[in-house]
Design a protein around this nucleic acid. Structure first.
Lengths: 232, 232, 232, 232
DNA sequence: GATGAATGAGGATTCATTCAT
DNA sequence: CATGAATGAATCCTCATTCAT
């Protein structure tokens, strides 16, 4: 491994530099393995070895396997909310466009990264690790919920969205995304699928978004059945 | 212990009947426990005890825990698709109502039964059991897909639904249902959720269905951006 | 290992007979090792191997190392209280003789056996294993205390012993015995002691008993300093 | 950091003084922790931190945990026997009072100080450190023995104590004190004891002393059974 | 000398699987 | 066939000790 010569003010001893790099290396290795094998099936020793250190070293930085996992979640998911929120604050366009943007950004920063595997992992193993489930609930689900809710509220406030039961409307946005993550990391990853059955995430998201905004029905039809009929 | 001689076809000696019934009892017990605790956290001993036999006996019928798991899945996937298909054939109302009916029936016969736990289980463990994943694809996902597709096609044919990319539209129906099953059996079952965050399945389905049919947008807004405006 | 042929009514299959013998064999091995090396330093695997079984087998009979230890204490100490109590009930002689008998029996059944090492172990490691300390307190110390107290009370009731503060008088009996056990298993076991310094337990007990009963002082002297002076 | 030049013998530069003081600080910290938690349960890192140095530094001064332990014992056994002996030489009162004084002084200078914890520690760990055991024998037990013996001999010489087997009589004085130290640092410190069971050292010592001097029996009774009957 | 990052042997406990009865 | 006693590999975590800086 190449070690650049120490120069002037950034002359950090090799040992110290490693010390700073360790947590990150461990988190990366942990993310890979947790996503690949799940929480229970991932051995801490393997994580350590993937990061190029020994078992004991891992425990120098993370006091337990659960703490390691929480750190992975924080590093890859919850830590991002501030900037997501900030981006939304600045958004100036229509709320439908805002929603499109939200889902597109989500895809780039979560859905299309290894981080998506964490959600699959949580949903798969929540039952056996209540503490982790609670943590995820708090650190990811609730902020995510709030974020979506703000978008929907904005749409209603501006008269772009029809009045809705926010509590449940949130799931109309959430569910397709969660489904996509589950799918990608379960049946979607199955070699059994021939190409025709593969899901193209970009198209999937685009389609979901438009259906979500406009529904399946022809405008007229819709009115007939589920809304007040037009005045005769 | 007295064992009466076998007489008619329904008079199987108790001993023998038990013997024949064993695998089934084991599969039932295994289904319950796998659904409740997941694959890794379920102990074969517990399965055996729930079925009223000893650990050793279980291995007489299933050569390993993995084989038991596969058998459980196979045994519980006796598709009800034929009858669902038949019901849909006979349906006479509008297609939106047909979709509402489909999802409602689905909830009663799948979503609200142990089968939903099985789906959660399969999606969670698919990564470790590619065989199972393929099997589930073929036995459940594809027929389900076809069924949904037929409904959507009918809607388009009758001019009730707008034209759509069927391939992906199917997921607009599938995703919310899959999500509901996963949620019910993971975070939804987590004691960390306070009552306010609990999901009421009936309301969830009702909400999803209507959003699916009509979208989030105000008709006017919608038309402005994505549809032809209604005649004034 | 010789296995006697199974005969008539005692024909227990070898496996079953082992099953019955196991707990005892494990308890014996555990007693030896706990006494020799202490609680913390004794490895359960070693106990198992000494008993001729594997690590896993030990946990079939004792759910944890602590439970194993408690079982050892029950088997070797607390279990004996009923018969000790019974013996004292029947005792007909003077209370001084009763005390002599008590200490002599104690020596034969505890002090002079490996069980004495358990007390040393507890006193040594109580600080690190509070649960064990509490257990010992309850199962051994309190019954022992009560037993001694009954003897002293009897002596007072019959006018053989002078009035005393029972609470603390108990320790006058207890302390020398505890000391003996500690000594035997610590400095007394040290090869550094030449013969002259060795403690002969029988003589030690005899001496302690008589000193306890009669004190160090000449009868007259005693009265002069610590009791009401004789009438002039 | 400024380091003043060394001037007089008491002006050791701070750095250097710290350096010289290190081993002592480590020994002090180690004594505290060993006494509090025992040998096995004390972590060298904790000792180092208590002494204000790093783990590595500790190993600069003591080649292993065991060597540290031995050093702790050796360092804290600078016997106070000379002054105790001197005090006893000067004692002018009755020998019973002398014994009372001895035990009272012992309590103030040993029993009630950290030294009692050291004794507990040594007795607890003697089995694993024969060297320490021998050392303690020589440095503490033997001088202590001699001291007690001189008191008892004086009592016999002056006709205050009855004739006795000195070899064993010594233990009548020693045992209660050793017991008290063990108790204080094991079960006595256990939170499992409710207040009623706590031992008040002063009362314990007072009680032991008087019982030791006078025995349990009524003067008359005593004589009847174990001594020559008083002349009628 | 001092530091503290890194190591890795060690130990309690679990559980799928085997096999003598 | 059925049993359940026995096994031992597997896993998380601790901590004395080393050594590069």
């Amino acid at each position: 491994m190449y070690t650049p010569p120490a120069t002037s003010d950034q002359a950090v001893p090799r040992r110290a530099r490693r010390k700073q790099a360790r947590p990150g290396e461990l988190l990366d290795a942990a993310l890979d393995l947790f996503v690949e094998k799940g929480f229970a099936a991932t051995r801490v020793e393997e994580v350590a070895h993937h990061a190029g250190v020994s078992k004991g070293t891992l425990f120098l930085y993370f006091s337990s396997k659960e703490e390691l996992f929480k750190a992975v979640v924080r590093h890859n998911l919850s830590g991002q909310f501030p900037q997501w929120n900030a981006q939304l604050e600045k958004f100036a366009g229509s709320t439908p466009d805002m929603l499109r943007s939200l889902l597109s950004v989500w895809w780039d920063t979560v859905g299309n990264t290894k981080a998506s595997g964490l959600t699959k992992l949580i949903l798969s193993e929540a039952g056996n690790f209540p503490e982790i489930a609670a943590f995820y609930q708090q650190e990811v689900i609730q902020p995510g919920n709030a974020l979506i809710r703000r978008v929907l509220q904005r749409g209603m406030d501006r008269g772009e969205f029809r009045p809705m039961d926010l509590e449940y409307a949130v799931y109309s946005v959430l569910a397709p995304m969660i489904f996509l993550m589950m799918w990608k990391h379960s049946l979607g990853a199955c070699p059994c699928l021939d190409g025709a059955q593969q899901l193209d995430p970009a198209r999937y998201i685009a389609h979901q978004t438009e259906t979500l905004l406009n529904g399946l029905c022809q405008p007229a039809q819709t009115q007939a059945t589920t809304r007040k009929p037009p005045k005769k």
